[in-house]
Nucleic acid binder design. Structure first.
Length: 219
DNA sequence: GTCCAGGGCCTAC
DNA sequence: GTAGGCCATGGA
């Protein structure tokens, strides 16, 4: 166990507070948590700001379309029009319908999809699969994204060429297997990535460049 | 006008 | 097996 992995989580949490990603009680999801809605959101936010993805999600909700049967039955062009604000709308319409077909046909009702199942769907890569497992189904799968890689490479805890799997192992082997912790940690990394450390290789004003991490950080 | 956002697929070497 | 191109909107 490398204690730094958890220590960084504590520092981020102290700095930014709980981020309240899915299940969401905040701004973008007024409703109760719905695994399907979270799954759709995970696709819509691919390489796209959450505000743009949330608009698309809202468009689906206000039309009563947050249902795999309905999305699968829609004309693809119509679906693309509705999710336009999330960008890549033709691709995302296609991907959403692929996810829905899987949920309706391949998956058993009310069962949690496996990671392999999700990766078999066109348009679902490792990050989206783990996001769906973690935030929709509360499976402890640590989500790795570009922020995570950048931050932990700079800190020196990961190699530049580390694969998704290697980075995921870094977290999962050094943290208790806790889906709540994983979900909050990933959200905090994203928040931190937006706040600071954008272009400079190492920012001295960064929260992680102080305190007990300082010596390690600068070494 | 430029850069970026809660990626992933396809193609060419 | 991997680097590069492509998908595309909306906010800073």
């Amino acid at each position: 166990m490398n204690p730094l992995i958890h220590r960084i989580y504590e520092l981020l949490l102290e700095t930014y507070g709980p981020q309240g990603w899915w299940p969401v009680r905040g701004t973008y999801f007024p409703r109760e948590e719905d695994p399907f809605e979270v799954t759709v959101g995970a696709v819509l936010t691919q390489n796209t700001s959450w505000t743009n993805a949330a608009r698309a999600l809202e468009g689906l909700r206000e039309r009563g379309l947050l249902d795999p049967h309905r999305i699968a039955a829609l004309e693809k062009k119509e679906l693309a029009r509705i999710v336009r604000s999330s960008g890549y709308y033709n691709q995302k319409a296609e991907r959403l319908q692929g996810v829905c077909r899987f949920l309706l046909h391949a998956a058993r009702r009310d069962s949690i999809p496996t990671r392999e199942d999700l990766l078999g769907i066109k348009g679902i890569g490792p990050e989206t699969a783990d996001s769906i497992l973690l935030y929709a189904h509360h499976v402890p799968a640590f989500v790795i994204d570009a922020y995570t890689k950048r931050l932990f490479t700079r800190i020196g805890l990961a190699r530049e060429d580390a694969s998704y799997t290697e980075l995921q192992q870094l977290f999962m082997e050094n943290l208790p297997r806790d889906e709540g912790l994983y979900g909050e940690y990933h959200a905090l990394i994203v928040r931190h990535g937006k706040e600071v450390c954008r272009k400079v290789p190492l920012c001295n004003h960064c929260v992680l460049a102080r305190g007990d991490l300082c010596a390690f950080y600068r070494s």
